[in-house]
Design a protein around this nucleic acid. Structure first.
Lengths: 226, 226
DNA sequence: GTATAACCGGAACAAATGTTCGTGTCAAAT
DNA sequence: ATTTGACACGAACATTTGTTCCGGTTATAC
């Protein structure tokens, strides 16, 4: 599952277009930009890119595209409200976005991350380090976690079968990155499964144990509607 | 030339939509959001807004909108950094359980409620009173809210069609109580709908406007896994 | 009253846009 | 040689989405 030059071109074009016009391009515009004559081919490659976690699509809607960028942290800024007394909250580091679909580079130096999000103590299990991530993509909707949600993750090196976990894929290099998935281990091989009715997420990812690293388990969810 | 309330609504909606989905809404979506049934009226008001300089339109192209705001310099500014120390949280009263399925009696004396839950400021819209409820039942799973979740509700007397709301049923007495549902209003009658694949929740509840009272709208969700 | 302008609604329409399907190419694996 | 999977094309198709037109309503001014 490699990023073809044409797909890279597409990403670049979409980013530029979005920046310049304020909204994403259509299939035909993308095709024209990268030299694809058929919309079906554009569609095909967009599906590929979505599966790889580079963007999110909203099917059936024109320009229903959204690039996933590591610097996608919007919505976290808010005026701190000082509250008297000891707060039943904990500050957990916020590491940015994670694709429910696939990869996003793992923060190289977690210590350097300055953003934090305040979390009610009651949402966290008593023990252990925790961190927060914003979910991008719809691939975990069946697990009641959707695009824009913030998941609280407790750092731990192993999880039970079926639990929702943040897993870093070490190998192959093309797939390197972190992803939010349901975790399963059957006789020596690791399976990462999405939870979505969308057939695009149907097939599970399978790895050898040494190809992945479990970062932690989802212990909470924060969601905001407005 | 003055900005009508409806036009202000439109601007707010477009801004929110753009922020959430990454691309602008269609005429019909705008209409539905602000209660305009005809796309021609939406079109009319967009022209007005464009003439007033609040946005730019690209005619003949779907979602060809762009709000004019200094805020729209995406990605270039540094985000405000929230550091530990100050708590970006708010204490909201916790009123106990609410049935997603069948109604549960409303707390008689809200003032008597002692419990509060600390909520990240981030999850609340800055304005307005808010309270928290624990959800009981599975009837809202399709809206990604399940048994045990805590919903944050902003007190407000009316909500948009399709929004998840806490509604108190006043009459008939057999049904009296509060419930968590999707709210719809069609020509003079109120419809409360569950969101679940379970056929038991299939048929919506229908009332006259004077039979129910909207307590507020769900603005956030907290969930904890074991 | 009547006129006028701003605003609204509904429906028909046309253009834009995503989806699907049958077919074809090519390289790697069997 | 055959099969398989990733990638590509093009055309028909279905939906989404913006536009237009024509008739209302409401408030204000004359």
């Amino acid at each position: 599952m490699k990023l073809r030059p044409r797909q890279q071109q597409m990403l670049d074009f979409i980013r530029r277009y979005q920046r310049e016009r304020g909204y994403p391009p259509t299939l035909r515009e993308i095709g024209a930009a990268v030299g694809i004559s058929s919309t079906s081919v554009v569609n095909y490659n967009l599906e590929r890119l979505e599966a790889m976690g580079f963007l999110i699509r909203n099917r059936e809607t024109s320009r229903g595209l959204r690039l996933i960028e590591p610097e996608d942290m919007d919505g976290l800024e808010s005026e701190p409200v000082v509250f008297g007394g000891e707060a039943a909250v904990r500050a957990v580091p916020f590491y940015g976005a994670i694709a429910a679909g696939l990869p996003i580079p793992v923060p190289e130096d977690p210590m350097a991350v300055a953003e934090t999000v305040m979390v009610p103590e009651m949402l966290l299990s008593r023990s252990g380090e925790a961190f927060a991530l914003r979910v991008r993509g719809h691939s975990m909707v069946d697990a009641l976690v959707d695009d824009g949600d913030i998941v609280l993750v407790r750092s731990q090196p192993r999880v039970e079968n079926g639990e929702m976990a943040v897993v870093e894929i070490l190998e192959p290099p093309e797939q390197a990155g972190a992803t939010l998935k349901r975790f399963y281990e059957h006789d020596g091989s690791i399976e990462l499964r999405a939870a979505s009715p969308d057939p695009a997420y149907k097939t599970p990812f399978v790895f050898r144990p040494d190809q992945v690293r479990v970062h932690g388990k989802v212990v909470g969810v924060l969601r905001r509607y407005d």
